[in-house]
């Protein structure tokens, strides 16, 4: 798959519209990014534990169980494209 097709496909999946003018710049950035990844791949990580957080720390905080913040229904539904009976309406995909 060529880079342009790949980027268009990724754009579709992540819901970003990519214009033809933007494409050359994106391909350039894609190459820079992939070079970077290749450089990382050349590092030998044998025996190194993967880490999720930048610092190896533990916390202790737990939130007290009190309902302290909610937003109005109008606000909650403001971004929705399609609202029926105060609920967000979506295509039916039974999982």
């Amino acid at each position: 798959m060529d880079k342009e097709t790949l980027l268009k496909k990724l754009g579709l999946k992540t819901m970003f519209r990519i214009s033809d003018e933007e494409m050359p710049l994106l391909i350039q950035e894609y190459d820079i990014f992939m070079n970077h990844v290749q450089a990382l791949e050349s590092i030998d990580t044998t025996g190194v534990e993967p880490m999720t957080f930048p610092y190896d720390i533990e916390t202790t905080f737990l939130r007290e169980d009190e309902p302290t913040h909610m937003i109005s229904r109008e606000e909650a539904l403001k971004n929705a494209k399609d609202v029926t009976h105060h609920q967000i309406r979506v295509p039916k995909v039974v999982g």
Binding site: R63, E66, P67, T68, H69, M70, I71, S72, R73, A76, L77, H85, H86, Q87, I88
Partner: peptide, 16 residues
């Protein structure tokens, strides 16, 4: 999240 746990309330009112 600090929104309320309830049952049978009006739809989309117990959210943040």
């Amino acid at each position: 999240s600090p929104s309320k746990v309830t049952f049978g309330e009006d739809v989309n009112t117990m959210v943040n």
